[in-house]
């Protein structure tokens, strides 16, 4: 099963995602609450997938995405963002994100997008 790095500054979102992903059969490689920590953990844990929030302190998700793709052009990063932030989503897709999920999300959609991105 793919190992996922869950990145979100909100403890609530990390908890929801970990529960949902574990139930869907994914392994949680680790979690990060800032973009900076996400980049460090990406190198350390080498996850199969990254679920990346956009608005975070220290380093936002777009910057972290770009750094991860620079380190590993084959990185599979799925953005997770507030509904309506199409502009950020477009920038992320151009920067190498595989797909995106809009919050508030539904569980089936998250699992479907991640399964496609990991394949």
């Amino acid at each position: 099963m793919p190992k996922i790095l869950v990145v979100d500054d909100a403890m609530f979102m990390r908890a929801m995602l970990k529960k949902l992903l574990t139930e869907a059969g994914f392994d949680i490689a680790g979690e990060a609450e800032t973009g900076r920590v996400a980049v460090d953990l990406y190198q350390e844990l080498k996850p199969d997938l990254v679920m990346m929030d956009i608005t975070m302190p220290e380093m936002d998700g777009l910057t972290a995405l770009k750094e991860i793709v620079k380190l590993d052009p084959a990185a599979k990063v799925v953005m997770c963002t507030a509904l309506g932030q199409e502009r950020s989503v477009m920038e992320a897709m151009n920067a190498g994100a595989k797909d995106y999920i809009l919050k508030p999300f539904n569980a089936e959609k998250v699992v479907e997008v991640l399964k496609n991105a990991s394949g």
């Binding site: 609530f12 608005t55 309506g84 932030q85 502009r87």
Partner: peptide, 24 residues
């Protein structure tokens, strides 16, 4: 608790994220 505070913060984040897109 801390989890509920985080959920409410995220609610504000989701509303504001959508609102700033409309402003943009």
């Amino acid at each position: 608790d801390e989890m509920a505070s985080s959920a409410i913060g995220e609610l504000g984040n989701m509303i504001s994220g959508h609102a700033t897109t409309l402003l943009s």
